[in-house]
Design a protein around this nucleic acid. Structure first.
Lengths: 208, 208
DNA sequence: AATTCCGGAGAACAGTTGTTAACTGCATGG
DNA sequence: CCATGCAGTTAACAACTGTTCTCCGGAATT
């Protein structure tokens, strides 16, 4: 379906990606609403006007970053939730997965945590939509399990939302501990696991 | 101990408060890291240089806003947690309290949610410290209850952190629903209550 | 081979920013 | 009552911002 792009479109996507990467780097110590278009182009080494060939505004770039940060995560999530195993096993695996992802993509995680409640509405909306999709997918994956036989759709979504929110909280906690000691990171992991387990216990006794 | 301030210091605190109020207003549609000092003074109607008489920088102003937004909340929290009553009653009361507070101080809540992971380190640190204090206070209040007889200090703090995080999540959810319909707000309230109740059930079955 | 398309460069625009310095007028303490 | 202190003003600074218009060179199309 997709025959190799011409050297023209290839070059365009390359600078586009360079702009995204540069922006992500600059956003480690500021919010999107203070990110200047010239700042980004300067970091890449292109003229300020080149920015407009790829994005209408920095807000537009932010929405693209949301897609880049969260878009490819859906299969990963689904995989973790639907995989068989004891409840505690799944929790440990999920927390490990988060820790690993934060370690390999810290800037992406920081961006999402920061802009989820940030000052740029289109970006907030994009993040909210992606997280809602996550919750929906998790809820659907849970509904396949026999454990959730008597659960109403509403309750399933409520639980899924709780899980998603805690994934993000855990990710944010890992992020804060990234520059800390190994022991510090271990402490964060154990704390996150125990909170997850408590929720899991509540889930088990939810009905009746 | 504090005899009435002279008309001089009174005037100073008045413009200082005006700066804080104006900044809080401007921060409804942007992040602190993009808030300009001149922007604030212009909104108040004073010269840009007057800003320096009160704050070293906008980051400094942000820290002051954290104090204003969270400093006065400690007695309120302690009160809610330690008050007697059935577990479900306490949950309903807590959720109602949050809803009311978001309704009366939306800008403050938005500011905290936004800058908790925002781009200005001193402000992030100030918020983290206040939230840690909340967790500590909640944990201490819980430890007084006979229900938590066999709980380790670590587990108590873990649960308290979970509660505090969910207070904030609920507050943020209420904020998003503020401009929505009455039904929408009701839905958010019921969702928050059920999530809290699930956590409460997990807590009840935590030991053994 | 000729023509169109288009990503990027360059220059210029009016506005904005934080920060400095030297000032004014008035409440305060001696 | 007079001298000091200090919140707020005015003016100016270099540096920066987003946006428009015009242009260039090379890939893509015919």
């Amino acid at each position: 379906m997709s025959h190799t792009l011409g050297i023209r479109q290839a070059q365009k996507q390359k600078t586009r990606q360079a702009l995204l990467d540069a922006a992500l780097g600059l956003l480690e110590e500021q919010s999107l609403s203070s990110l200047g278009l010239r700042e980004v182009t300067r970091a890449v080494g292109v003229a300020p006007t080149a920015f407009y060939r790829h994005f209408r505004s920095t807000a537009d770039l932010g929405v693209a970053l949301v897609e880049e940060a969260l878009g490819s995560l859906h299969p990963m999530i689904e995989d973790t939730v639907s995989t068989a195993g004891d409840s505690d096993e799944r929790i440990v695996r999920a927390v490990e997965l988060i820790a690993r992802h934060v370690g390999t993509h810290p800037a992406h995680v920081r961006f999402i945590a920061r802009e989820r409640h940030g000052g740029v509405q289109p970006v907030r909306d994009a993040i909210r939509e992606q997280l809602a999709r996550f919750a929906e997918e998790v809820g659907h994956a849970l509904s396949e399990h026999p454990e959730y036989a008597g659960w109403s759709e509403d309750d399933l979504l409520m639980l899924a939302g709780l899980y998603v929110d805690h994934m993000l909280m855990a990710a944010s906690a890992f992020l804060e501990a990234l520059d800390g000691s190994e022991a510090e990171r271990e402490r964060v992991a154990r704390m996150a696991s125990r909170q997850m387990r408590l929720i899991s216990i509540g889930r088990r006794h939810w009905l009746g």
